[in-house]
Design a protein around this nucleic acid. Structure first.
Lengths: 236, 236
DNA sequence: TAGTGGTCTAGACCACATC
DNA sequence: ATGTGGTCTAGACCACTAC
C-alpha cells in the first residue's frame, strides 16, 4: 500500500518522510511504538533501503523518531523542542530595514581578560587581549551594543587593523574562519552606560547574546551583543 | 594525497568533512574559492562520489560551504551564524537541579483569541480557545511563567483533561504531536503581575520564548514562557 | 548545452545492543 | 548469537543553471 504515486522523479526520501510523519501525527503509530524496520519499509514503499534510511534519519534529526541499532526505530516520546537560531549580521539587518548602517568605536585597547570572559574562551584570566566596544547604528539611532574580546594569539594581524573603517565582526569573519562556536541567550536590565549608549531608559530589558568562536587552534573571539529593547530573534 | 589512513572502517564521510574543514580553516581554500568537484574529490580521497557528497552536504548544512548545481561548491563567504536552541523541559530542568518540581494553574478558561496570538497561530482573532496560565516551581520558588492558548479544534479531547494534575505541555506533547514549530526569543521587563507571580521586583528583565506548534491540520498551541531573571539559554 | 550537484539503486559489510 | 541501523560502493539518471 501507499506506493509513491506519480513522483516528481526525485524526492522519494522526502515522500517517505512525509508519509511516516503523517502516520505519526495521525496517531496510527503512537509515541513509543516501534515502527517497521528499514528493510520492511523499503518493500512497502518499493524503494531501496538506503532511501528509507535517509528518510528516517531526517525524521530522527527532526526529533520525531528515535533510532537504535538492534532495538529498531521508535516514535519519540517527546519530540525534541529544538530550533535553529541565526544571529543576524548587523549591517544586513539594518540595511534590509532601509536605514543607512553606521558604527562607532567606543573603546579599543589591550586589557587583561576578565575571569568571566576567560572562562568562556578557555583561557587564563589576566591574559592580555584586545578589547573592543562598539555601537551599531541604524541611521542615527543606536541599534546594538557590541562588547568584544579578541585572542591576539589566534589573530596576530588584528593589531594592524583599523576598526574605525571596518566592522570588527566582518573583518573577523573574513580573516579568521571559525569551526566551532558556543552561544547563549539571556535577558538583562540596561545599566546606566548601556542606557546612555542605546539612548533608552536605564533598566529597560535587553536581549543579550554571548557568542564565542573557536578554530582548530583555540578561541578566536568572544562577543556580547546587547540588542535594543523590543528586539526579537526568530528561530526556524 | 591525504588518503584516509587506517580508518575506523566507517566514518570516511566524516574524515573527508574534517579534511575539507581543515583546508578551509588553514586558509588553503579561501572564502569564496571554488573547491574541486565531487568527482575529483572522490578520486583524491579514493572513495565513491556518494561519500564525498555526504561529506560536503554536512559542511554545507554547517554553513561552511555553499553548493549550487552547475556552479560548483564554494567556501562560504560568511559561515552562517547558526546555533541550535533547545527549549528545556521545565520538569527535567528543575529535577536535574535537585529540586522537587511543582506547578500551579493560575487560570484555565475559554476566551476569545487576542489578535497577537491569532496572528501567530494563523487563526482569526476572537475565536474561542482554551487559555491556560501556569507557574512552574522549583521547590517553593517560582521558576517559570507559562501563558498558553490551545486550539480546541486541533485537540478536542483537551476539554476533558484536568490540568491541576498534569503539566499542560507534557499532556500536549504526548497527545498532540506536532510537525512544525515556530519560535522566537526576546526580552521584556516584568510587569506587576509577573513580578508578583515570580516573586521578583517589577521591571526586572525576563527572557521570553514564544513558541507555536502546528500539525498537518493546523495550529495546536501557542505558548509564551517567561523565565526567571538571570536565566540563560545555551545553544550548541 | 554541457557540467555540476541531487538522488536513487542493489548489494555488501560492519558495529552495536539487545536477546 | 543475531537482528537492526550505519555506512560504503559503483553505477545510473535527473535537475538545474551558468555558459
Amino acid at each position: 500500500m501507499s506506493q509513491p504515486p506519480a513522483m516528481p522523479a526525485s524526492a522519494k526520501a522526502l515522500f517517505i518522510a512525509a508519509e511516516v510523519r503523517r502516520r505519526i501525527v495521525g496517531r496510527e503509530w503512537r509515541q513509543g511504538d516501534r515502527i517497521p524496520d528499514e528493510a520492511a519499509l523499503a518493500v512497502t514503499f518499493g524503494v531501496a533501503r538506503a532511501t528509507v534510511n535517509k528518510a528516517l534519519q531526517l525524521l530522527a534529526e527532526e526529533g520525531l523518531l528515535e533510532r537504535r541499532r538492534r532495538a529498531g526505530t521508535r516514535v519519540a516520546v517527546d519530540p525534541a523542542r529544538k530550533a535553529v537560531l541565526t544571529v543576524p549580521i548587523v549591517r544586513e539587518q539594518i540595511e534590509a530595514a532601509g536605514f543607512p548602517y553606521g558604527h562607532r568605536i567606543i573603546a579599543s585597547r589591550r586589557s587583561p581578560l576578565p575571569a568571566s570572559i576567560a572562562r568562556r574562551m578557555g583561557l587564563t584570566a589576566g591574559l592580555t587581549a584586545l578589547h573592543l566596544r562598539e555601537v551599531h547604528y541604524a541611521g542615527n539611532r543606536p541599534w546594538q551594543l557590541e562588547d568584544r574580546w579578541i585572542n591576539p594569539h589566534a589573530v596576530p594581524e588584528i593589531e594592524a587593523v583599523d576598526f574605525r573603517q571596518l566592522n570588527s565582526n566582518e573583518w573577523l569573519v573574513r580573516n579568521a574562519p571559525y569551526v566551532r562556536a558556543t552561544m547563549d541567550v539571556s535577558a538583562a536590565n540596561a545599566d546606566r552606560r548601556e542606557a546612555r549608549l542605546l539612548d533608552i531608559r536605564q533598566g529597560q530589558a535587553l536581549l543579550i547574546v554571548n557568542r564565542t568562536t573557536f578554530n582548530d587552534i583555540g578561541p578566536i573571539t568572544s562577543v556580547r551583543l546587547a540588542f535594543q529593547p523590543g528586539h526579537v530573534m526568530v528561530a526556524d
